[in-house]
């Protein structure tokens, strides 16, 4: 039953998932493929030295951004990719649970022998499937670019795969919080607006605030701030304290969402 419901949700959301995944892969591809046409690594070095804040924004604290791996890793934290990675959990949250209540699909399903938990499991499975698809595409973009246009210094693709997994954990974690919002709501518009607002705050605290020393502490309160794919690429090690926080928030969000969804009234 959960499989049927997951297939149904994916069927509704593939027109969103497909372009999001393609864009993730495309961005990752471009960051490697454009190194040579833009004059090699030197140009990046010059730009980043002239604008240290941009360098910091793109991860100069975690990895040397003047190496091929450093340049390629920018795709994993770039604000555009961050927006893509937020768009997926937002889409799932707006379509499933609360979205199902608004569309009437909850009435159609829950009037049958469909337990609420099956609808919830389908939402989680869809969220995770999309997260994996996007992050696999991100890695494939990097790998494909390295194969077509090998950079001066070869990149450790295994580490990029681990970095993609960290990004998938970030998407799942964001999805946990947004599904909690969805589980208690009955309006897609409200889920989208509140979810987007929360994500912007999260992005500001995790990415923009650390550029200013007096606000750097805000990073600790942001999911984005705990996602460190570039650290994985640089060291080959997953930063477990940060990734653990992402996992904990994700699991807590999903558990709370399951509880809210199982107990709430589904009004017409």
């Amino acid at each position: 039953m959960t499989r049927t419901l997951t297939a149904r949700l994916l069927q509704r959301l593939w027109p969103i998932l497909l372009p999001l995944s393609a864009l993730c892969g495309g961005v990752a591809f471009l960051f490697v493929a454009l190194i040579e046409p833009m004059g090699g690594l030197g140009i990046f070095e010059t730009v980043l030295r002239m604008t240290p804040r941009i360098g910091q924004l793109l991860g100069s604290n975690e990895i040397d951004p003047t190496t091929s791996a450093g340049i390629a890793s920018i795709a994993y934290v770039h604000p555009f990719v961050a927006i893509l990675m937020a768009a997926w959990p937002l889409s799932v949250a707006a379509a499933a649970l609360g979205g199902d209540v608004e569309s009437g699909e909850a009435d159609l399903l829950l009037s049958r022998a469909v337990p609420r938990r099956a609808m919830f499991q389908a939402a989680v499975a869809t969220l995770l499937a999309g997260a994996l698809a996007m992050c696999a595409s991100l890695w494939l973009g990097t790998a494909l670019a390295q194969w077509i246009s090998p950079p001066e210094d070869p990149m450790p693709l295994g580490r990029f795969a681990a970095a993609a997994v960290v990004n998938a954990v970030l998407i799942a974690s964001t999805g946990g919080v947004l599904l909690l919002l969805s589980a208690g709501s009955s309006e897609r518009g409200r889920i989208l607006a509140t979810g987007a607002g929360l994500w912007l705050l999260n992005f500001f605290a995790g990415v923009v605030a650390p550029l200013f020393p007096s606000l750097a502490f805000l990073r600790l309160y942001s999911l984005q701030g705990h996602a460190r794919p570039q650290a994985v690429i640089a060291s080959g090690q997953i930063p477990w304290p940060d990734t653990g926080i992402l996992l904990t928030v994700g699991v807590a969000g999903l558990s709370a969402a399951a509880l809210v969804w199982s107990r709430r009234d589904v009004r017409s």
Partner: peptide, 20 residues
């Protein structure tokens, strides 16, 4: 509250019917 298996034996047509 929370029982669902019995709904296999129910057919329901809502007043504000909304289908996919």
């Amino acid at each position: 509250w929370g029982d669902w298996r019995h709904r296999a034996r129910i057919g329901f047509l809502p007043g504000d019917l909304r289908l996919p």
